[in-house]
Design a protein around this nucleic acid. Sequence first.
DNA 1: GTGGGTGCAAAGCCTTTGCATTCCC
DNA 2: GGGAATGCAAAGGCTTTGCACCCAC
Lengths: 140, 140
Amino acid sequence: MNVDDALSLLKSRKKRLTRMRKHTLDIIYTGGPVSAPDILKTLKMKKHPVNKSTLYREIKFLLKLGLINEVQLDTYVTHYESAFLTHHHHLVCKNCGNIKELICDELEGPLEKLEKRVRTKGFLINDHNLEFFGLCSSCN
Amino acid sequence: MNVDDALSLLKSRKKRLTRMRKHTLDIIYTGGPVSAPDILKTLKMKKHPVNKSTLYREIKFLLKLGLINEVQLDTYVTHYESAFLTHHHHLVCKNCGNIKELICDELEGPLEKLEKRVRTKGFLINDHNLEFFGLCSSCN
DNA sequence: GTGGGTGCAAAGCCTTTGCATTCCC
DNA sequence: GGGAATGCAAAGGCTTTGCACCCAC
């Protein structure tokens, strides 16, 4: 599911395809995990400035429709990414803030086993969140 | 390392032992991962109200001395916990917000292996963060 | 034309900072 | 007494909300 697919989906659901909606989707789908302030800056740079209220409402809209997901990387801003990526984790550079996706199947086995074990103790797990922190190749 | 040990440590480092310092340490050490607003509420309830500036400065102080750690949970506020707990992960209840610690060694092997593998790709990992989301025993 | 989308201003929440005052050692 | 700790007010960053205006269909 790329940006065009997402736009088709919106059209089929009778949602409007405004310029800002297209731009926002494009940034989130191609830019990896991005925050609202990130998107605002990018749009401003690309000469398509949006009001922050509009952007936050747009994000809520895309979340509700299941086109994007929230990613909680640090505590003070929320990041967003495409909802159609394969299960993955994140590498966060503590120096420059750069975020990379990390796809690794090898952990899923142990994680599932653990989740089942905890389930038997009364806690029902239905999701997990795994991030790695360190220095990216440019910063070390 | 309990609260009294931490207080002794502070004393040995010639740091002042104010009432608020004791109360704050006590709440963080015994209350599991708590946020600054949580601590403010608790202190108010216990009839030891503190100004928020004081608390935030106290938290920075305790972080700098290595007595407490930040915990990145799925929320928009930062949580803090004792820095002397054994390596563990967190179970976060999506209904009531209750947070439990989960100690499990079985993941460390696979995680270390993965971290080494990524290291060879140029990203230097020095920390990770693993949380599980679901429903606690009271909520399901 | 109509309802969804947008901009603007204001406000809410978490956190930080400057400054004068207070208190621990 | 001296320096650290505290309270207060103000401000900064992210996010939300109310209201009037505008644009996609």
